[in-house]
Amino acid sequence: MKYTTEIVVDVPREEFIKKMDEPENMRHWQRGLVNYEQLSQNPGQEGAQMSLSYKMGKREITMVETIIKRNLPEELHTIYDTKGVHNIQKNYFKEEGDKTRWISESEFQFSGFGMKLMGLLMPGAFKKQSLKYMQDFKSFAETGKSVTDS
């Protein structure tokens, strides 16, 4: 399953990247993030891995993020792996005056019957979740509002 989402954030690209590239900021725009742990000696660089733990409703999900391409401020590509799901994220950051257009290409590959069925029956839920993270980042970047405030 593949889809693209995009949003315009009313901050200059340099400020956008600074806020996005700081792991401590993730808790302000990634709802449900409980913990993260750097798994590599070279955090933030190509090949680096980080473990991310989320609580979504009653479910707890742990995934590993791997940076596969880091060409900031233009692009950042990552892979997220968790049980039954392999997600490739290609993020592009376009300068538009004092604003930044964030374009995110998502590709989900499912394994196991349950996850394949979920991907087939609920593709909109994945896109909706991606867009929600983008909107929450926009709110955090523009106004400093954190998802932890609600």
Score class of each variant (00 low, 15 high):
Lys128Ile: 06
Glu74Asn: 14
Leu120Thr: 08
Phe110Ala: 14
Lys94Asn: 03
Phe113Ala: 14
Asn71Tyr: 03
Ile79Thr: 15
Gln129Glu: 05
Leu131Trp: 04
Ile103Tyr: 04
Lys116Arg: 11
Ile88Lys: 03
Tyr133Lys: 06
Thr100Val: 01
Lys116Glu: 13
Gly119Asp: 11
Phe93Met: 09
Lys99Ile: 07
Ile103Asp: 12
Lys128Tyr: 07
Ile103Glu: 14
Ala125Lys: 01
Gln89Asp: 11
Leu131His: 14
Gln135Pro: 01
Asp81Val: 13
Tyr92Asn: 12
Phe137Tyr: 04
Leu120Arg: 02
Lys83Arg: 11
Leu120Phe: 10
Lys99Pro: 05
Phe140Met: 03
Asn71Glu: 15
Gly124Asn: 10
Lys99Asn: 08
Phe108Val: 07
Gly114Ile: 00
Gln135Asp: 13
Ser104Cys: 12
Gln129Lys: 00
Glu96Gly: 04
Gly112Glu: 08
Tyr80Val: 12
Asp98Met: 05
Phe93Trp: 05
Leu120His: 08
Arg101Pro: 05
Asp81Asn: 14
Thr82Pro: 08
Thr78Tyr: 03
Met122Leu: 01
Arg101Ser: 08
Lys127Asn: 06
Lys94Cys: 00
Arg70Met: 01
Leu120Gln: 06
Glu74Cys: 01
Met115Gln: 09
Phe110His: 15
Asn71Ser: 08
Gln109Gly: 10
Asn91Met: 15
Asp136Asn: 11
Ser130Asn: 04
Gln129Gly: 02
Asp98Ala: 10
Glu105Thr: 06
Ile79Ser: 10
Thr82Ile: 12
Leu121Asn: 12
Leu76Met: 13
Ala141Ile: 06
Tyr133Ala: 07
Trp102Ile: 10
Lys132Asp: 14
Phe108Met: 06
Ser104Phe: 06
Leu131Asn: 14
Pro123His: 13
Glu107Gln: 05
Tyr92Ser: 15
Ala141Gln: 08
Tyr92Arg: 10
Lys90Pro: 00
Ser104Lys: 14
Pro73Met: 06
Glu105Cys: 03
Lys99Leu: 01
Gln129His: 02
Ser106Tyr: 00
Thr82Gln: 07
Met134Phe: 04
Leu131Cys: 09
Asp136Cys: 01
Lys138Met: 14
Ile79Leu: 13
Lys127Phe: 03
Gly112Lys: 12
Met122Trp: 04
Glu95Asn: 10
Ser130Val: 02
Met118Ile: 01
Thr78Arg: 04
Phe140Pro: 01
Asn91Trp: 02
Gln89Asn: 07
Phe93Ala: 09
Gly114Phe: 02
Leu76Trp: 09
Phe110Val: 11
Tyr92Gln: 13
Asn71Asp: 15
Lys94Met: 00
Asp98His: 00
Ile88Ser: 10
Ile88Met: 07
Met115Val: 02
